[in-house]
């Protein structure tokens, strides 16, 4: 591990000033410390933000607001979260392990780095870790990699389950930086890799995530998160799907579908959603709609199975959501 300094800060202003001097924010540390041990991340200074008052979870007007420092476990267990957005609770509970969920913050979860094995090996080529060095995965072992949003430079999937749920629910994020506060849809946090996979997100230097705002809509109680994997827990998704259905008079009026494990960022499925509108919520109709999910999908040598698994996962998630309507 590289030598580094730690600054503990007591206010957002102090945090932003420290980060402006080159410090990296640290909360639960479940991703960053791991990567620092491997020297994949080499920050010379850390800004410990755990003392900031950003651990709130509350209903505000028409939104569920979750502070950036709330822990995964406490958000998942929160009665209001479970009542208005069961999808979020389920996505959180399907992520990581109990120990990690106790430590990991919501902001850190959304900012976690990819699980591509080559990204984590200093001696392997990785455009994300070392721009211009190449991508060892595209011609290498890539069974876990993305089939959507890939480029010649990178095919790593975004690993967050929570992000998939939040993208499905049209959540926004509030951040504060040296130039003040701004708010934007969470989907816009994530960049496609294109030819610059080392640029993963759209936060500006020293910007601090304050909280996440999730619009509350009555039909969100149908939300389900399905994570398909070989091990029952503590494994990243091969394919996952978040599904929310608004069914009235036996017809789908609105649908929200987003997927994980398949895209280089959390992947909203507008074509699937559109195909559901006006349809009866039957398995056959779900299958027909889910078939749109693989438009533009490109398999590498090892992940072709995801093209078969993706629509099946969406179909099942829609069936599960349909059971709660």
């Amino acid at each position: 591990m590289m030598p580094f300094t730690v600054a503990q800060v007591a206010s957002e202003r102090e945090a932003i000033t420290s980060a402006g001097g080159g410090g990296r924010y640290i909360a639960g540390g479940t991703t960053l410390i791991d990567l620092m041990r491997e020297e994949v991340e080499r920050p010379s200074s850390l800004v410990d933000i755990n003392r900031l008052s950003l651990r709130h979870i509350r209903l505000e007007r028409n939104a569920l607001v979750i502070g950036a420092l709330a822990r995964m476990a406490e958000v998942a267990a929160h009665p209001e979260v479970r009542r208005v957005h069961p999808l979020i609770a389920e996505a959180l509970e399907e992520g990581a392990s109990p120990q990690l969920r106790n430590m990991a913050s919501i902001g850190g979860n959304l900012m976690q780095r990819v699980r591509c094995p080559y990204f984590r090996m200093l001696d392997a080529a990785c455009n994300k870790r070392s721009p211009g060095s190449g991508c060892a995965a595209i011609e290498g072992v890539n069974g876990g990699h993305a089939i959507l949003g890939t480029s010649e430079s990178c095919a790593a999937t975004h690993p967050s389950d929570l992000a998939v749920a939040l993208v499905a629910l049209d959540a926004t994020m509030r951040v504060r930086g040296p130039q003040g506060e701004r708010r934007f849809p969470i989907i816009d946090l994530y960049r496609l890799p294109e030819d610059k996979p080392h640029l993963e997100h759209t936060l500006r230097p020293a910007e601090l995530i304050l909280d996440v705002h999730v619009p509350v809509q009555p039909f969100a109680v149908s939300g389900r998160y399905l994570k398909v994997r070989d091990r029952s827990s503590y494994e990243f998704a091969l394919v996952s799907a978040a599904a929310v259905l608004d069914v009235r008079n036996g017809v789908v009026r609105a649908a929200r579908v987003a997927c994980g494990g398949v895209g280089t960022r959390p992947w909203r499925m507008p074509a699937v959603e559109a195909a559901l509108i006006g349809q009866r919520p039957t398995r056959a109709n779900f299958e027909t709609a889910a078939a749109h999910a693989t438009q533009g999908a490109r398999a590498l040598s090892g992940n072709g199975y995801k093209i078969a698994l993706l629509p099946r996962t969406i179909t099942r998630a829609l069936e599960m959501a349909g059971e709660k309507v």
Partner: peptide, 10 residues
């Protein structure tokens, strides 16, 4: 995390 062995749920 990547060499899978059973967890309690399995």
């Amino acid at each position: 995390a990547d060499y899978l062995v059973p967890v309690n749920l399995d």
